[in-house]
Nucleic acid binder design. Sequence first.
DNA 1: TATGAATGAGTGTTCATTCAT
DNA 2: TATGAATGAACACTCATTCAT
Lengths: 207, 207, 207, 207
Amino acid sequence: MKESRTKQSIIDAAITLFNTKGYAGTSVRDIAGRAKVNAANISYYFTNKQGLLEYIVTQFLDGYIRVLEQVLAQHLTSPKETMLLTVRALLRYQSENRYLTRFFYREISLDSVLNRELVPLYLSRERQYFQVLLRTGMESGEFHKVSFSVFMVQLKAMLQAPYLHTQYISEVLYTIPSDPLFLGGYAKEVEKWLEHTLFRTAGLVPS
Amino acid sequence: MKESRTKQSIIDAAITLFNTKGYAGTSVRDIAGRAKVNAANISYYFTNKQGLLEYIVTQFLDGYIRVLEQVLAQHLTSPKETMLLTVRALLRYQSENRYLTRFFYREISLDSVLNRELVPLYLSRERQYFQVLLRTGMESGEFHKVSFSVFMVQLKAMLQAPYLHTQYISEVLYTIPSDPLFLGGYAKEVEKWLEHTLFRTAGLVPS
Amino acid sequence: MKESRTKQSIIDAAITLFNTKGYAGTSVRDIAGRAKVNAANISYYFTNKQGLLEYIVTQFLDGYIRVLEQVLAQHLTSPKETMLLTVRALLRYQSENRYLTRFFYREISLDSVLNRELVPLYLSRERQYFQVLLRTGMESGEFHKVSFSVFMVQLKAMLQAPYLHTQYISEVLYTIPSDPLFLGGYAKEVEKWLEHTLFRTAGLVPS
Amino acid sequence: MKESRTKQSIIDAAITLFNTKGYAGTSVRDIAGRAKVNAANISYYFTNKQGLLEYIVTQFLDGYIRVLEQVLAQHLTSPKETMLLTVRALLRYQSENRYLTRFFYREISLDSVLNRELVPLYLSRERQYFQVLLRTGMESGEFHKVSFSVFMVQLKAMLQAPYLHTQYISEVLYTIPSDPLFLGGYAKEVEKWLEHTLFRTAGLVPS
DNA sequence: TATGAATGAGTGTTCATTCAT
DNA sequence: TATGAATGAACACTCATTCAT
């Protein structure tokens, strides 16, 4: 079921503008103007501006969770391999939705109905995913014994860094996060960190 | 020269509200209401809303740079010691201005005149500070040979993490960033990371 | 293509209020209130208050120039007859738009973008029209040899007088400029002046 | 009794600004800024903005009436001579107060308390002055029999023209109204008109 | 499905004015 | 006499949204 051209162009325009100017700093007329549609269409398709935001964020989080599910669906036996593939998949997903990712990680820290109600629902599923994975790895002896929370805050920082510290990241990798080449480079940095802090046995899984 | 009561209460209210609702999401009437002053005072003291933002951000960045200068003023001979004291001082400064810090690190990624003109001026001074420090440390043999850019993006991530990943950080440290106890805890994590990636000789400088 | 009811009632209200209170002395809420429409419609239809002014003034000046063109379109051979018909037509046009005329002649002397840029464009066309007409009349011998500038300043004063010296004019003509009867009366005064200062041959063209 | 420096500089600034931007278009801060005084002084010296306007207009009208009284005080016996001296004196007075004159003639047509109450008081004295002068002249046989109202509207137009039709007047007289040379030139035009329409005997009174 | 017209609430800002000093 | 601080009301304008078509 393809979205109507109008609906999709609204979404695309919204993501771009939310990313550069923030949600509150973007007006529905801005979005309609960039999407080259009538502003009333936004209310028609998404009820209101808040509805458009929820649609976009939900879409992003649905995709994020789907990435986790797709890794699980491969029925890998090694926790180490699962962790590596998960991280790679998430980095790829974020890179494919880079404007949305950047917007989400920025706006998530604001006080809003969205962040108090909708977002925690998804984040608790992410937390559960990694909790199970970590426990399994530690029980099997593949992972060092680490604090879950300490690991998580570091992992999240790793995942978000390229989208929050844009001033430096481009120099580090001689490229920008939008560049597909970036994926490989930054992913290796993250894997090095996993190797060092989590994995007991050396040797990377080939990417 | 003390700020007038009115001016200061506007600043305090603005920091709180910018932090929770963002700059664009905060109206001057919101600020005036919370500060319990007339909204016209904002124009009176800061010309306009944008002027208030600039005043606040400038104040924050001035303080940030002053922290660096104060460490330099101690004329320490060891680069390692200098680096440690710098990081501790910056963490303390951020903790003392935690709402402002959080707001700044979020809003800095938006497209605005402020971020295109005023902020880079200050950030280039921070960059220069660490560039000199790193070069000195590497020449004296106290530091590993590392890429400046890679080091910086990691350092910035370390400094900003407590303010950007607030969902997890409280669990990690059994406390919140506002808690003074937090300082010691998180600072130790950062120092451990420095020890590991930058310093050639073991042994922490007593805090 | 008729203007929408809302747009036209804004224009009508604006002309009335600009005339009695001046442009700067009239607020958009005044206009909206008198027009019995929402104030936001003014921005909707005219971008802003200044745009409404420009629309109104442009409309007036367009009509003014059109009057001149319509006289020309009659292909009269006698300069004297052309001059008389022109003056009568302009007086009729002004009488039909008396509030606008009065407002325009007052506000034109203020320092504004409008008066520095838009208005001179139209006035230069009026000047050209009379320049050609006067030259033709003088070459054919129907007109006395007069200074163009002296003639113009007097003609303009004649045309504007009923709208600028309203305190006396009503007494002079035992009527007000809005009265259609006025037209004949004042027009005759102007023609008498033309007869006296410009025309070499006696005898009025029947009106 | 000299005005205080502050008060006088407020008056000067107000006249300039009222002339270029109109009364409603000028803010008390504009005036204070140009006068280089604190805005509160305006309320202190003139109660409020309206009071400043009244002060200025009253000053102008007082001077205007004083001009008439000074001609009368010369106890001239010839109505013709009186009329000529009056017109010359009024033109000189206006030229000496040209900004104020221009502002007054423009703003006088607006609907305001000032124009409904204060101004008519003075204008009725001007009317009476000319009424007596005209009657005397006509009874003595020096003046043609003319309609008072018709004469007045023409006279007023003559007096105001240089200040209302500024676009053309400069070309006519190869000078600007502010130029002292202008006085003589324009005065002669007006006297020619008087000679033609009012005076029975030829021969100008030497100026 | 899509739009132009229209609105009420809210935006940042300026206004003339007051008042303690 | 003169001022900086402060205010409430008003300013022009933008906002997200509704609705008839």
